[in-house]
Structure formats: structure tokens, C-alpha cells
């Protein structure tokens, strides 16, 4: 058994990084041991990787349902809790309820989407992390989980395909 290590490879651009991932796969490092850090939303397809799983759609849908139910409560339950006649209108009436249902469904959906992003991405998280600031200048960083034995192999392979540097990743305060 050897130690687990985390390597940080920095590529100048998308293409070498994609080649780098391919190289890693050839070295036997699974995709889920590699993470891509980028200043731009480069897609998984560009990197030749699987689509990243996300719970946000589910959470958004759940939020919409909750919003709809809340809207229903406001529109249909609150008037009965203290029934007051206004203008000869029925206590529970259709047209105004539609507005309430719509607004609260939308609110529920949007709010839960936002919250979903936080949950899924573990925001906010101010712990030290492996990161290099050059990322936002266009560099692509690969974070590689590997065994200590493979370290040299990986460094040389990645340097060959264009990595600017491959080094031991250090977590530091962002």
C-alpha cells in the first residue's frame, strides 16, 4: 500500500487538457478520480467526459411542487380559516387563486433551484482547497487523485501532452 496523492496539472488550454484526460485514462486513472477546474464553463463533452450528475433539476421540481401546495394553502385554506365575505364574491374563487398558485409555484421553483445550487455545490465552503488562480486567466487545471506510486508516471505523461506544470496539489485558503 502506498499513500494516496493529489496532483494538480495545469494546462494552457482546452485541447491539451482534453488530451491529458485521455492520457490519464490510458494510465488507468478513472474519470471520477479526475476533476477539471476551469474559469469557463467548458462542457464535459469537450473534455470527453461523462455528464456530471446534478440534483438541481430534482430539487427545482420539488420546490415547484412545494410552492404549488403552499399557493394552494394560501388560496384555498386561508380564506376558510376566517371566512369573510367581500363584495359578494365566493369565499374561494377561481381567478384570484390562479394568480396566487402561479406566483408561489414559480417562487418555489426558483428559490429551490437557487438553494439546489448551494446544496449540490456545497456552497458556501471556505475551507482551504486545491486551486490555482491562473485558472481564471485561461488555464485549465486537472486535479488527479492517484496513488503515490503512479506520481512520476503521471507527471511525465502529462508533461508530454502539454501540461505546463504538474505538481503536488496543496490546499490553501482561497
Amino acid at each position: 500500500m502506498t499513500d494516496k496523492k493529489m496532483l494538480l496539472a495545469i494546462f494552457p488550454d482546452v485541447n491539451p487538457a482534453a488530451v491529458g484526460i485521455k492520457t490519464l485514462r490510458e494510465l488507468g486513472i478513472q474519470d471520477d478520480h479526475v476533476d477539471v477546474i476551469s474559469g469557463l464553463p467548458i462542457t464535459e463533452a469537450m473534455m470527453g467526459r461523462k455528464k456530471h450528475p446534478s440534483h438541481v433539476p430534482t430539487i427545482a421540481f420539488g420546490g415547484a411542487v412545494v410552492g404549488f401546495v403552499l399557493g394552494g394553502l394560501l388560496a384555498f385554506w386561508t380564506p376558510i380559516s376566517y371566512p369573510i365575505n367581500v363584495g359578494g364574491q365566493p369565499i374561494i374563487s377561481g381567478p384570484p387563486s390562479v394568480v396566487v398558485l402561479f406566483e408561489l409555484t414559480m417562487l418555489g421553483m426558483l428559490l429551490s433551484t437557487f438553494v439546489g445550487v448551494f446544496l449540490d455545490s456545497k456552497f458556501p465552503n471556505y475551507e482551504p482547497k486545491e486551486y490555482v488562480t491562473e485558472v481564471s486567466d485561461g488555464k485549465i487545471a486537472l486535479l488527479i487523485d492517484c496513488l503515490g506510486d503512479d506520481e512520476d508516471k503521471i507527471i511525465s505523461a502529462l508533461t508530454n501532452v502539454g501540461a505546463e506544470s504538474v505538481r503536488q496539489a496543496e490546499a490553501h485558503q482561497l
Binding site: 477539471v36 476551469s38 464553463p41 446534478s54 445550487v117 465552503n125
Partner: peptide, 14 residues
């Protein structure tokens, strides 16, 4: 910035 790094997952959710 909430600790945003630009990982694949963060971008996907966003």
C-alpha cells in the same frame, strides 16, 4: 464567491 473554484460539478449545477 462562496468558495467557488470552477470545478466541473460547480459549473454543471450553475
Amino acid at each position: 464567491a462562496l468558495g467557488f473554484r470552477g470545478t466541473e460539478g460547480e459549473w454543471a449545477h450553475l
